[in-house]
Design a protein around this nucleic acid. Structure first.
Lengths: 353, 353
DNA sequence: AGAGCTTATCGAATCGATTCGACCCGAGGG
DNA sequence: CCCTCGGGTCGAATCGATTCGATAAGCTCT
């Protein structure tokens, strides 16, 4: 009303006073948690409009309610990297779905090295979804559990009491390897995901496996090694086509030591290997069989369909979202093991004679 | 100490009592905003450990502080789509950089159709970054402004008083077109980004341009049309390689009407067009010149370097972040116009004779 | 030793909303 | 005609921490 400058934004108390009702009544008008006479509602709304009140302050509301409506998703590494991976994006999609009825927002954060002052300790969130499982993620887990918030871990082991969403990585990898073996291949090379946060691109040695911190990598490797116990392996520094090309060149450069089949732990890596093979004039699958893992749609494969194990990426995210929703309702979270489905493609074939 | 069940999480008051200090002192121990004797700090920390107190509740802190440490990023469309676009991800990267000294988290949200109860009205955030500019984004803008929070708009016009981060899309597009014209091309086709939220893949007509709601598309088109006023154009339904392939097929299928050059409004689309050309047995750039926009790294282009205009995507995000940081410090936000840099690649060449 | 400081700690107000029990009043039932 | 029931509204407590001004204690300097 007065054109004096109003130093601060109006509060619900201001609105209530203007409308001549109690603040509790005004509050109820906005939250709709109780019956309010139509006339009263009108007056409150009018007063709000008058004062330029844009609704309850979410900060205050979340304090009182004990809920902020935000779920944190903690990924390792640069945010950008996470989203270059189609599996991650598919998962995020599923996650938003799974959280839909909470109408919760998703707060992305990386697991920062610095424990103190980290976003993980300070963010006003209701629950956490941890993705992947590096040593760093484990450290983050401590912090999160300390805050007493619900946690769901995707693709990682968080210890007792923390629900997980996992894949049958071992069995699915073994399926892929078995398919390759059944085609007659014995001279097989493996391309693994990063073993640890160092992400070194280098041959995989027993001691490196011993010290590996990324469970997915280790599990898939175990599955592959069930079939090919002695296959040489090189770890890539990330799940990228370009990485696959680099590793592919390492594996295929020397005709003398060239394997007849390469199994990669991700489709992107597999595509890279195929590209490296093409560079070297090798035909796939006539000269070289290549298999991947994930079952994503990959651009640029020509007419090929990648032989791979299709993981339920969207489903993974959705499951995580649903567990979070459950836990926020006070029910116990449940660990879910999702299964991959083997898909024979056109990138694998019989051993060249 | 007692193994009685403690119904609720300890508060800072509990810790203070246990340590025998005032809550204000305990608070200061955690925030570090004032000097505390080492001995006192120890006692408080010990008490906290004893009680399992994991630090101040961020909800309460954000109420009191008036800051939640979260910045909302509003994108249009599915979150997933945003992350399939390398430009978006680069921008997000820059944004996190720009916000670094705020140590703020980023809350992703879509501009939901439903105004009420939307995340946009209820999220406890300190500021907003709006990306793109559809009609929906404009609607979101209203809500945000109503909340009186700082807003920065990337690639869109938000009206007076709202700082923008923009590109010289018109001039940069004209540069690309000029390069193509200087190579002698007169028979040029354009591939545009979506014109509106319908994202229809269809020939661009004057009335469609008239009703277009996506500023970027319109501006880039204007730049291209400065040089090629009559060039036919087809709008893609998104910035994706696959879309480029589809549109490319439409443009190139009929040898009779086939242009000698195609200018796409994004690199991904350009790559798609190149792929479509290769499908049809056309050589690039001998038979067909293709240019893009964005200057991203694209996988799978072989030895080609795309002719394009390189936009400062990371810088765009960083600039937005910095403006947000400024506004939160109470200074006025400043509109920034960033410029693209033309890059001649190997995908454009002289007109085939 | 007293004036003038700095340092450590305390109390109390405050941030802005939500929510629960109490209260009022008119309508319906016995 | 009295009593009960329930819709509508109000007061006041509460959520958990931050912060500012006040107070007390310890020191230096003359």
């Amino acid at each position: 009303m007065s054109s004096q400058e109003t130093p601060r934004r109006p509060t619900i108390a201001d609105v209530a006073r203007e409308a001549g009702v109690a603040t509790s009544t005004a509050s109820v008008v906005f939250s709709g948690k109780a019956n309010v006479a139509a006339a009263t509602r009108e007056r409150v709304l009018a007063a709000a409009a008058e004062l330029g009140y844009a609704g309850p302050d979410p900060r205050a509301a979340s304090l009182r309610r004990g809920r902020s409506g935000i779920v944190a998703v903690v990924l390792e590494g640069h945010l950008r990297a996470a989203f270059l991976d189609p599996v991650s994006t598919a998962m995020m999609d599923g996650l938003t779905d799974g959280l839909a009825d909470l109408s919760a927002g998703i707060l992305l954060m990386r697991d920062e090295p610095g424990d103190e002052g980290s976003a993980i300790t300070n963010a006003p969130v209701d629950a956490f979804v941890l993705i992947g499982c590096s040593a760093r993620t484990r450290a983050s887990l401590e912090v999160v559990l300390g805050r007493g918030l619900p946690v769901v871990v995707i693709e990682g082991d968080a210890g007792e009491g923390v629900p997980r969403i996992t894949l049958d990585n071992v069995a699915a990898s073994a399926d892929v390897a078995r398919h390759v073996r059944d085609l007659g291949h014995t001279d097989v090379a493996l391309v693994t995901l990063p073993l640890d946060t160092d992400r070194e691109r280098a041959p995989v040695t027993p001691e490196r496996v011993e010290n590996a911190t990324v469970d997915v990598t280790v599990h898939r490797l175990a599955g592959l090694r069930q079939i090919f116990p002695d296959a040489p392996a090189i770890s890539a520094s990330g799940s990228l086509i370009d990485e696959g090309v680099l590793v592919g060149r390492m594996l295929l450069a020397d005709p003398a030591t060239r394997p007849t089949a390469v199994i990669a732990q991700s489709d992107l890596l597999a595509v890279g290997v195929i590209r490296a093979a093409e560079e070297l004039g090798l035909r796939v699958p006539e000269d070289l069989s290549v298999a991947g893992f994930d079952g994503i749609e990959v651009d640029g494969l020509g007419d090929h369909t990648l032989t791979t194990s299709v993981q339920p990426a969207v489903e993974k995210g959705r499951a995580a979202g649903e567990q979070v929703a459950r836990m926020l309702r006070g029910e116990a979270g449940v660990t879910q093991d999702l299964t991959c489905r083997f898909r024979a493609g056109t990138t694998t074939g019989p051993v060249p004679r």
